[in-house]
């Protein structure tokens, strides 16, 4: 995956590895399937999902992704936001059809 530029709209994969077996995930459950905006590239870090099991851990791009806070919990004040570190393999285009076009 090419590095995403700040401003790119992304969606966090609606994936639940914890339902398939033992795992270590750094993507909060409340963001799965949520759309946000890449704010900044933080760097490349060894994938913690592999590190936790002492497997070879390839470096993955870590992004700072910004989300509107109220839609996540159906409460809160408009304008409030959540900023979260998300690894590249958890992100997909917000609109896959648009990406393919």
């Amino acid at each position: 995956m090419a590095e995403l530029a700040p401003g790119t709209r992304v969606r966090v994969k609606d994936d639940w590895p914890e339902r398939r077996g033992p795992c270590h995930i750094r993507t909060p459950h409340y963001l799965r399937g949520r759309s946000g905006t890449v704010q900044r590239v933080l760097g490349r870090f060894a994938n913690p999902e592999d590190l936790a099991f002492a497997r070879p851990a390839p470096k993955r791009v870590l992004y700072h992704v910004l989300f509107d806070q109220p839609p996540i919990f159906q409460e809160g004040r408009p304008g409030d936001e959540v900023l979260v570190e998300i690894f590249e393999h958890w992100l997909e285009p917000e609109n896959p059809a648009q990406e393919a076009a």
Binding site: R26, T27, P28, L42, G43, F45, P48, L62, L66, Q69, R77, G79, D80, E81, V82, L83, V84, E85, I86, F87
Partner: peptide
Amino acid sequence: MEIRVVDSTADY
């Protein structure tokens, strides 16, 4: 004033 919650989830 808006709030930005920073969830410290990974390497930073």
